[in-house]
Design a protein around this nucleic acid. Structure first.
Lengths: 336, 336
DNA sequence: ATGAAAGCGCTAACAC
DNA sequence: GTGTTAGCGCTTTCAT
């Protein structure tokens, strides 16, 4: 480990192999013109010497970092993890790496992060959602790399976006509930103002209820986003106390919905007979729990894949076309 | 976005401010000797110009990347996410960033990843588990930065480790089951050979059963790791068919355990009355589901925090002391 | 507290 | 297919 000798450079490999450093450089680049035998000899010598290619120097010289910067609200969320997975796997096909940062659902933190990430000279930057601090937005507007906002369709996109309307997605669920005969419908979500996607879902709920001429005032604030299962359970308890005549509940995520479900189970309240419940995000829990959860699939992984494809197109000089995802309502046992 | 003008450098900021580039460099470094007014003027001019500090150049010259490389089996796992969160937050106190890679529970992929990550010249590298390909191990042995293996206590550590014995942790759960009066105990885990932590848990199960003079052959292979909730449910169905007289089940993770629980619920089989169930990892689901899940807390976040602290100590020239985590058995309703 | 010179390790651009 | 030269944007080092 604590070998203190200076690590070998391309010049060392060149010396050992009897070629110029430039030829060593070519040996390490996939599609460069160099004879097969020479490349093999060089790579063998490099391995023997314990040479490790230095991306830092390469990046500085070529002005290409191979990084795509990505900010997500939380690392501990299966939806965002899927998006990052899709991004990561797709970008890997072109040897690009993700530089990840967590905003903790906080635009101040996002601003700090954007600044930090841009210093690494990423070739594109992906942010979650369309809400930023003023300075954060300015940083993104000024930087001359592709900027992609995801998980949302911003009113005024900075550059590109790959997302969907959170409000419309929730409207689909409200419509489903109304079609199924429910009228007194409540919404369990986070405190207003922090999680923009959550806020939009609440707004979508209210708008859809109004269209149906229904009362949209049954709102339970479950705490600061992200809402945990536990907070979903607590919110359900509160709801039963405040609005006992509720028939159906739209939750800001499957995690909150599952929490609500467990609270019903504990109280011996049958779902969907007494309360129908719907979630958001198509988490694994929703298709395994009893009863299975009605939810909305936002195609988290596809968001990542399509964002990566968009980035690669732009870097290839093609025109980048923004993507509108169409979330899909999945009706399961918790609402029928 | 596609502003094509060349981005400003320190030299540009220097010119505008009427100082040398070196002074601009000092202005961007926190604890350097420079007059307050000058620094402020420089930073203001930089912001006006839209200057973004170039870490790449800085890293090349100073031979410090500010990166810590981290490989985890999967991004979509709350335990590893917690570890990364602990690492990330602790390293952020010293302005270091994580460079993350996913091995997909595959040592070949880990080898590829290690090579890729080392090219970025991280100042330390953290890997999950103590099993690597021969070349992967050699790469880690040869590199002259701190190497930390986590989530395990390797038989022959490469350098440092922050982990625990997976086998001993499962032994504690078996002991608990035996104390509670269960004798016919089964194990639900992944197919052998891929997930080393999972394999060690199975080994720990077998060893503990033998100590108690009990039959350790009730083993259900639930599929390739990581075992999903769905696979846990399927494994439970298989178990009921093959070993109907089983009294208690140790599962390789809480996710598998929760799946088993839902299968019991669907079949109308009461837990813990008919089957006691235990999981691993102290996932959120385990404290919210009904009945709550007996599990083992491996202190995922602490693993990350202590790994980061160890790295910072070593980089500070202090002696790095390996950490043995003591997992904690949490007895809940699923086994009493 | 500030500046000048040199160079980190690689590759773009050009020559042959 | 290979080599030479120069320089990417910083910071180390030394001088003042």
């Amino acid at each position: 480990m604590s070998n203190t000798r200076k690590p070998p450079t391309m010049a060392d490999v060149a010396r050992v192999t009897g070629v110029s450093p430039m030829t060593v450089s070519r040996a390490f680049k996939a599609d460069s013109l160099i004879s097969k035998e020479r490349r093999e000899a060089i790579l063998r010598a490099a391995e023997d010497l314990g040479y490790v290619f230095d991306s830092t120097a390469s990046n500085l010289r070529s002005q290409k970092s191979g990084f795509v910067a990505v900010t997500i609200p939380s690392i501990n969320n299966a939806n965002f993890a899927d998006t990052v997975g899709g991004l990561s796997d797709t970008l890997a096909t072109r040897d690009m790496q993700i530089l990840l940062g967590y905003t903790n659902y906080n635009t101040q933190e996002e601003e700090r992060l954007i600044e930090q990430l841009l210093r690494r000279k990423p070739q594109a930057i992906v942010v979650t959602g369309g809400k930023h601090t003023e300075r954060g937005r300015r940083l993104l507007e000024t930087v001359n790399i592709p900027v992609i906002e995801t998980w949302d369709i911003p009113a005024e996109p900075i550059d590109h976006y790959v997302g969907f309307s959170n409000a419309n997605a929730v409207r689909d669920m409200v419509d489903h509930f109304v079609r199924a005969g429910y009228r007194r419908i409540a919404f369990i979500g986070g405190d207003v103002g922090r999680d923009t996607r959550g806020s939009e879902r609440r707004i979508g709920f209210a708008a859809a209820m109004q269209v149906h001429g229904l009362d949209a005032s049954r709102l339970i604030a479950a705490g600061l986003p992200p809402i945990s299962m536990r907070e979903g359970a607590n919110a359900m308890a509160k709801l039963i106390e405040i609005y006992p005549d509720t028939e159906a509940i739209v939750c800001v995520s499957d995690l909150a919905a599952y929490g609500a479900l467990t609270e019903c189970r504990r109280l011996g309240v049958p779902v969907p007979e007494r309360f129908a419940i719907g979630g958001f995000g198509n988490y694994e829990i929703g298709e395994v729990c009893v009863p299975t959860l009605t939810t909305i699939n936002a195609f988290a992984r596809e968001i990542g894949e399509k964002t990566a494809a968009l980035i690669l197109d732009i870097l290839d000089g093609k025109q980048g076309i923004d993507v509108r995802i169409s979330p899909e309502l999945i009706v399961r046992d918790s609402s029928r």
